[in-house]
Amino acid sequence: MQSLIVLVLVTTISFIIIRSAPGDPFSYESPNVSPAVRQQLRHQYGYDRPLLEQYVRYMSSVARGDLGYSIARHEPVTQSLAAALPNTLLLMGVALALSFVVGIGLGATQAAWKDSWFDRATSTVLLFFYSLPDFWLALAILLGLTYWLPLFPPGGTIDLVMHDYLPFWGRVGDRLKHLVLPVMTLVLLIAAAIARYQRAAMLEVLPLDFVRTARAKGLPERRVLARHALRNALLPVVTLLGLVLPSMVGGTVFVEKIFTWPGMGLLTVNAIDARDYDLVLAGVIVGGVMVAIGNFLSDLLYAVVDPRLRD
């Protein structure tokens, strides 16, 4: 319910902002188009009606499951979303999973080897990535690993020309190769943050009595760290999922644009440029839903990791 209210609020604010921005879907057509024709087109799509009426119409159609029509793409918004959403979910899903695995692993290892050369070196590297703007990192990776060192394809989800002619495993490999750079960009950005949290959490847990007891029982150090310390240090990091998702939704906008990944980010940016109102709002709604789901999953995971909550 709380999520629904937030979603309605976000949609409302976005509706007002995009309608307040200069221009509309017909404002930057050719100068050949006379104001009368522009007005007629605006009338046809109802953009000349009072803002409140447009808002009520829009919200009621959204409530009925109709997200509107994309003027720039000449298709229903749901059709655009159906094409873009799976790509974003794939990108975000893989990036999120890898970010947590890498971030937790690195953070825990750093804490275990506190003040060692490994800790210092990785802390510096992580801080470097943590402080980088996402679009800059994406561009640097694009240039570095596609042009200077041509190891990966520069964009898209598949090789548009050759994909259909590859054998099955070739097609799988092609998809994976195209996934590497956008995922790498997101992982470098997010894992850095997670590792910092994980390191701090581990350092809080390691001096505690139950860890000392585990060591005193003669358990191997690896087991002490993995089974006793890390498990307890995971709690604050798991809650990060809810925080990471919104920034990831934002980050994918740049990553998708630079790697020409045909997902929600690219779709929304193009829609903003074209003042494609319905598509912009649909992008906001989908982003909001993803964040809400992320929060829900975060709560769920918290219960899984912390047995006290299950009781």
């Binding site: 561009l139 694009l142 240039l143 596609t146 042009y147 041509p150 394809p153 520069p154 964009g155 644009k257 630079i258 790697f259 020409t260 690219l266 940016v269 193009n270 440029d273």
Partner: peptide
Amino acid sequence: ITDFDAGVTQLFT
């Protein structure tokens, strides 16, 4: 390819 730098990179790769 709406990002200019990405377009140029694709040409050179």
